[in-house]
Nucleic acid binder design. Structure first.
Lengths: 70, 70
DNA sequence: ACAGATAGTAACATATATTTTACTTTAGTC
DNA sequence: GACTAAAGTAAAATATATGTTACTATCTGT
């Protein structure tokens, strides 16, 4: 089986929580797939509102998905 | 002594944590006073980055200051 | 190897957060 | 009441998040 190294916490949580696709999670959250992709890639700085919606969908607290230290 | 009802969690924490002024906290965080004021007034939707900086200055976790339910 | 699904990006348009400047209001002190 | 510090706002300019469209890359099953 293939070795996959995943850093991003949102991505990890998305996969662990029902193994959703980016598209599915994006739809549930109410953003575009591209936005979800950029957030997972840490290409920018989402609004707290979107962070909260992601947390709600993935059933995780804010600190778990968006805190600084690993 | 005067009865003051404060709802906003950032404001509460700012006052409890060294009794900072909006101007002082804004400077420490690195945003303008107006931005701090709008965040405390919940007039808009700040970026996660600013939320994290506020949490760092006020020594609080994200969930404490920016979670939905009271 | 091919086909379909998923993920990674990019350019451009749009919405909105954030800054800058400035005015008003409120609370405290003399 | 006058003076000052702090807070609440507002309009306009700027920066940047988000959406739209579309193209490419990567993986998975046949």
């Amino acid at each position: 089986m293939k070795e996959v190294k995943v850093r991003n916490k949102v991505k990890i949580s998305r996969i662990n929580n029902g193994n959703l696709t980016q598209t599915q999670l994006a739809k549930q959250v109410g953003v575009t797939r591209q936005t979800m992709n950029l957030i997972e890639s840490e290409k920018y700085n989402p609004s707290i509102k979107i962070c909260l919606l992601i947390c709600r969908e993935l059933d995780q607290p804010l600190n778990q998905l968006f805190w600084l230290e690993d």
